[in-house]
Simulated assay, not measured.
Amino acid sequence: MRIFLSNRHVGPARDMLRDMQLCGADSRARTRLVALLDPVVEQVRQDEAQVLQEYLVTADDGALIYDDEGNLTLREGYTSRDVLDAQAAFREERAEITGGTYEGHRQRLIDLLNAWDAPLAGEQADTYDALCTALEEGED
Rank of each mutant, 00 (worst) to 15 (best):
residue 99 G to D: 03
residue 38 D to N: 12
residue 92 E to V: 01
residue 16 M to K: 00
residue 45 R to F: 02
residue 75 R to T: 10
residue 92 E to S: 05
residue 82 D to G: 03
residue 90 F to E: 02
residue 76 E to N: 09
residue 89 A to S: 08
residue 105 H to G: 09
residue 8 R to G: 08
residue 70 G to H: 11
residue 36 L to S: 09
residue 118 A to L: 09
residue 72 L to C: 00
residue 80 S to F: 14
residue 61 D to P: 05
residue 6 S to F: 01
residue 131 L to M: 11
residue 44 V to M: 04
residue 105 H to V: 11
residue 126 D to V: 04
residue 11 G to P: 10
residue 36 L to P: 04
residue 34 V to C: 15
residue 21 Q to Y: 01
residue 11 G to Y: 08
residue 106 R to Y: 09
residue 17 L to W: 07
residue 112 L to A: 00
residue 100 G to N: 15
residue 35 A to C: 01
residue 108 R to V: 10
residue 86 A to V: 01
residue 115 A to D: 13
residue 89 A to W: 00
residue 11 G to T: 12
residue 125 A to M: 09
residue 34 V to Q: 07
residue 34 V to A: 06
residue 52 L to R: 14
residue 100 G to F: 14
residue 34 V to M: 11
residue 28 R to H: 15
residue 49 A to C: 07
residue 4 F to S: 08
residue 19 D to A: 15
residue 88 A to S: 10
residue 78 Y to A: 03
residue 81 R to W: 05
residue 12 P to T: 00
residue 69 E to I: 00
residue 8 R to D: 13
residue 137 E to W: 05
residue 73 T to Y: 01
residue 4 F to L: 06
residue 84 L to N: 12
residue 54 E to K: 09
residue 81 R to Q: 13
residue 56 L to Q: 08
residue 22 L to R: 07
residue 116 W to E: 08
residue 130 A to W: 01
residue 139 E to D: 13
residue 90 F to K: 02
residue 19 D to R: 14
residue 139 E to F: 00
residue 108 R to G: 02
residue 16 M to G: 08
residue 16 M to H: 07
residue 124 Q to T: 12
residue 29 A to R: 05
residue 10 V to A: 12
residue 18 R to H: 10
residue 116 W to K: 00
residue 25 A to H: 13
residue 71 N to G: 00
residue 72 L to G: 07
residue 100 G to C: 12
residue 70 G to Y: 12
residue 76 E to F: 11
residue 24 G to N: 12
residue 121 A to E: 14
residue 18 R to I: 14
residue 59 A to Y: 03
residue 109 L to R: 06
residue 54 E to T: 14
residue 25 A to D: 15
residue 113 L to V: 04
residue 109 L to S: 06
residue 134 A to L: 07
residue 44 V to C: 10
residue 25 A to Y: 09
residue 42 E to N: 06
residue 64 L to Q: 09
residue 69 E to R: 12
residue 68 D to R: 13
residue 75 R to L: 13
residue 53 Q to P: 02
residue 85 D to P: 01
residue 95 A to W: 03
residue 60 D to G: 11
residue 6 S to V: 02
residue 91 R to E: 11
residue 65 I to W: 10
residue 114 N to D: 12
residue 26 D to A: 12
residue 78 Y to N: 06
residue 8 R to T: 10
residue 66 Y to G: 00
residue 31 T to V: 02
residue 94 R to E: 15
residue 53 Q to M: 14
residue 124 Q to R: 15
residue 109 L to H: 05
residue 21 Q to W: 02
residue 104 G to R: 01
residue 59 A to T: 05
residue 10 V to N: 08
residue 107 Q to I: 07
residue 65 I to P: 07
residue 42 E to R: 10
residue 77 G to L: 11
residue 95 A to H: 05
residue 136 E to Y: 07
residue 81 R to H: 11
residue 106 R to Q: 06
residue 33 L to K: 05
residue 67 D to A: 00
residue 113 L to K: 03
residue 17 L to H: 10
residue 4 F to P: 01
residue 95 A to I: 05
residue 20 M to H: 08
residue 114 N to G: 11
residue 102 Y to D: 13
residue 20 M to P: 04
residue 33 L to H: 09
